[in-house]
Nucleic acid binder design. Structure first.
Lengths: 206, 206
DNA sequence: GTACTTCCGTACCGATCGGTCCTGAAGTGA
DNA sequence: TCACTTCAGGACCGATCGGTACGGAAGTAC
């Protein structure tokens, strides 16, 4: 219904607003105010469109949030995906922690991590959004676990390290860094925290 | 007006409900649903009192939240204060991390940490609550920093360790553990994470 | 031009939000 | 008993919530 295949013949009046820009703005509002704290008025004003246009283009608030999270993953949180392709387990972990510190304290975006703070807890109306983010965090941890599993198979991580626990540890620190950023800590401080955190693990290299 | 000194002569009809119990229930609702997600209806139903009684006893939603956070500090989060009186820096840190893992995964309470998840981000109506929790987290970190400062002075922590960074690291892991608990991780997993985290620091003892 | 489709803006929907007010009952001290 | 105070309950407040209906304007395909 909403997102038709682009191959279809375009009929009628074409959309006047930039859908990507609108989604970007919605993402920022959710990031700053959380799912429940972001009202339709907040969202549409930031997106520069009316309620009608938003509902026609994205369906409803839940779907808009889902799309915003996707965009967040591909945009501000893309350091996470890039980190997975670092050559060694140590560099993967370091990229994630330093990336989290940087992304959570950017001056051009809300502090903290959308994936953590937008719906950590929720009332009845926010349960869908809460589940979206639980899945988002679980998925990220699972990818990291797979990466560490591969690293161990490649001899890149000592056999004594458990990939699941290690992935849980790194994501734990990353989430904590996001909370610290939302509490007001500076990037410099959080980079030092990331450095300390790296010492917890015996890496094969580095 | 609201909270008169207890020394005053008691006049009129005495309160019929248990104020402590009511506050405990309110705390749990805020813990599970967050500040904005917890409606007055949710709160008063759990507390077993009417809106009138709540407003007479606690003032308004913001004040109720403030009191609930106080109770949280003295109750479910009391492990934090107790940890500060452990004899060595290592034991302080270990008590905090293990305490966080246990408190965040209790079967008799909502998962996660009220101080983290009840208002990490907020809309306009939740800004006061958000500030309460920012202060709460900053205060906790400051106390831990003081404790580590003392530990270093007592020769209980190597001179090479910076108390501020160390306190930031430990609280970061503790917050991360709370996020993981809200994501569904088990206590056993989080205890393993806590063990890993302890290896990041060179302690004088243990 | 004409038929058709989708646009956008607005007015509006019922529900719920936090908070107030009023009333009658119930307990207090003298 | 009496005056006084505070209780609990529920109706009610304006504002805002997410979401919908409608209608005129504006674009496209033929």
């Amino acid at each position: 219904m909403t997102a038709m295949p682009a191959s279809q013949t375009k009929l009628g009046r074409p959309r006047e607003f930039d859908s990507d820009y609108a989604l970007e703005q919605a993402m920022r509002v959710f990031w700053a105010k959380g799912y429940e704290g972001a009202s339709l008025t907040d969202l549409t004003e930031a997106m520069g469109i009316t309620r009608s246009s938003m509902y026609a283009a994205f369906g409803n608030k839940d779907e808009l949030f889902r799309r915003a999270v996707e965009r967040y993953t591909e945009g501000p949180a893309s350091y996470g995906i890039r980190a997975l392709s670092e050559p060694t387990a140590r560099e993967v972990a370091e990229s994630i922690l330093r990336g989290a510190a940087a992304a959570s304290t950017s001056r051009e975006a809300p502090h903290g991590c959308l994936g953590v703070q937008a719906a950590l807890s929720a009332g009845d109306n926010g349960l869908t959004a809460q589940k979206v983010l639980v899945d988002w965090r679980q998925d990220g941890a699972a990818r990291l676990e797979s990466r560490f599993l591969r690293a161990r198979a490649e001899g890149d991580l000592p056999e004594t390290e458990d990939p699941r626990t290690l992935a849980a540890y790194i994501t734990t620190v990353a989430y904590g860094i996001a909370v610290q950023a939302a509490t007001g800590r500076s990037e410099a401080e959080l980079l030092r925290v990331a450095d300390v955190a790296m010492n917890a693990v015996t890496w094969s290299h580095g």
